[in-house]
Design a protein around this nucleic acid. Structure first.
Lengths: 235, 235
DNA sequence: TACCAAGGTAGACATCTGTATACTCGTCGG
DNA sequence: CCGACGAGTATACAGATGTCTACCTTGGTA
C-alpha cells in the first residue's frame, strides 16, 4: 500500500491520478449525487459503477469516507482561489464610481458593495453549474453520517467565510466601523446560505435566475442590516 | 395490516400509540441522532435497540422512511402552534413602548421587532433543547437520501416560514412598505438558518448562549437590511 | 536480464440485511 | 364462551456487503 490518499501532507495532485482512482471518484460523484449518502452507496456498488473489481478500491482508498475526503479536497481547492481572485478583480473594477445610481446610506457606498457582491455570487453559481454533483454531495454530507466528512466540509466553509471577511475588510466594502467579529459572523452565515442555496439551484433548474437574484438580495440584506444596526449602535 | 401510519388523513394521535411503536420511534431517535442517516440504521438494528423482534417493525411501519415521516410529523405539530402563540403574546406584550431605548430608524420601531424576535428565537431554542435528537435527525434528513423525507421537511420549514411572514404582517413588525414577497423570502431564510443553527447549538453545548445571541443578531440584521434597502428603493 | 512494486483481478468467507410464512398470546365484542 | 384481531415472536432464505489471501500484468530500473 502506498497512497491511501494520505501521503506526505500533499503536493497538490502531483500524481496525474491512476485511471482507476479517477474512475472511482467519478462513479462516486454520479452515484452519490443521485440519491443516497456516500457511505450508503458502498464500496462494491461504487466499483461496479466504475467498471472495476471491488478490491481495486483498496488500492486507492481505505474507506468510502476516504474517497469522500478526496472529493472534498478536490473541489475545495478548485473553488477557493478563483473566488478570491474574482473578488479582488471585482473590487478593483468597482473602485471607479458607479455614477451614483444608489444614494449613500449613512456614508455607506452601497453601489460598490452591491456590484462586488453581485459578481461574487454569480461566479459562485457558475461554479455550481460546473460542479453540481460535487455540491450535492458536499451539502448532503455536511450534515451527514460521517464526523470526518462533516469536519472537513465545515472547514471548507469556514475558510470560504474567512476569505470573504478578510476581503471585505481589505477592499473596504463595508464602513470600517463594523466590528471585525461581526463581519466574520455575517460572512459565515452568507457562506452557509450560499452552499444551502446551491442545492435549490441545482434542484430547480427553471428557477435558476430567480435563485441567483435572491442570493444576491439576501447577501445585501445581511451586510446592510449589519452596517445600519452597528451605525446606530444597536449591535 | 391496519395502520402503517397512513389511515384516514389523521386525527392528531387518537391512538395512545402501541408500546412497540413508541419504543421503535424512541430507538430511532437515539440511533439516528448518534451518527448515521435514518435509512442506514436499518429496520433490524432499530428493532434490536428497541428490544423487539425485527418483524414487529412491520406491524407499525412499512419502511424506515415511514418511521421517519412519523417522527417528523410529531415534532412538526409540537413546534408549530406553540411558536405562533408565543409570537402573538410577544407581539402583544411589546405593544406598549419600550421606553425608547433604541432610536427609530427611518420610522421603523426597532425596539418592538427586536423584542418579539428575541423571544421567538429563545422559544425556538428552548424547544431545540427539549427535542435535540429529533432536530439532529431532521436537519440531517433535510438533505438526506430519501426524497420523501426531504419533501416533508421542506414543507415543515415552509410552513414555519409562512407563519412567520404572516405574523410579521399581522402584528406590523416591519414597516408596511416592505413588500410581501420580500418578507416571505427573508422569513424563509431565517427559518432555514434557525434550523441550521440548531445543529451548532446541540453540538457545541459550551457555546449555547453565544449561539442564541448570534441567531437573534442575524435575524435582526436580515429584517433591518430588508427594511432599509426597501425604504431607499434599492430592492 | 531480473526484479519489484503499482495497478488490477479472482474467489471465498462470515456477516448482516430485508422479507415471507407461520406460530403464540391477551383482550374484547357478540 | 368463543372467535377474531392486534401485537409480538421464531425461523428461514436469498441477496448484498466488507474484507482477506492469492494471483496476474505491466513498466521502469538496477
Amino acid at each position: 500500500m502506498k497512497s491511501v490518499s494520505g501521503d506526505e501532507p500533499q503536493s497538490p495532485e502531483r500524481t496525474p491520478d491512476a485511471p482507476g482512482k479517477r474512475l472511482l471518484m467519478e462513479a462516486a460523484l454520479r452515484l452519490g449525487s443521485q440519491s443516497r449518502s456516500l457511505a450508503s452507496v458502498g464500496l462494491r456498488e461504487l466499483a461496479r459503477e466504475a467498471g472495476l473489481n471491488p478490491n481495486t478500491f483498496y488500492r486507492h482508498f481505505k474507506d468510502v469516507e476516504d474517497l469522500g475526503l478526496a472529493i472534498i479536497r478536490n473541489i475545495a481547492t478548485q473553488l477557493r482561489q478563483p473566488l478570491r481572485d474574482l473578488r479582488r478583480e471585482a473590487a478593483a473594477r468597482a473602485v471607479q464610481g458607479d455614477g451614483g445610481l444608489l444614494p449613500k446610506l449613512m456614508g455607506i457606498d452601497l453601489g460598490r458593495g452591491r456590484r462586488v457582491c453581485h459578481e461574487t455570487v454569480h461566479l459562485f453559481f457558475d461554479f455550481v453549474d460546473d460542479n453540481a454533483e460535487a455540491f450535492v454531495i458536499g451539502v448532503r454530507e455536511l450534515h451527514g453520517a460521517s464526523p470526518v466528512l462533516r469536519e472537513a466540509l465545515r472547514e471548507v466553509m469556514e475558510d470560504f467565510a474567512a476569505d470573504m471577511a478578510e476581503d471585505v475588510r481589505e477592499y473596504k466594502l463595508l464602513p470600517t466601523l463594523v466590528a471585525e467579529p461581526v463581519v466574520r459572523r455575517v460572512s459565515r452565515l452568507v457562506s452557509r446560505n450560499l452552499f444551502q442555496m446551491s442545492l435549490d439551484y441545482i434542484g430547480e433548474p427553471e428557477r435558476r435566475e430567480a435563485i441567483r437574484a435572491e442570493a444576491v438580495e439576501q447577501v445585501l440584506f445581511l451586510f446592510t442590516g449589519a452596517s445600519v444596526l452597528q451605525a446606530i449602535g444597536a449591535v
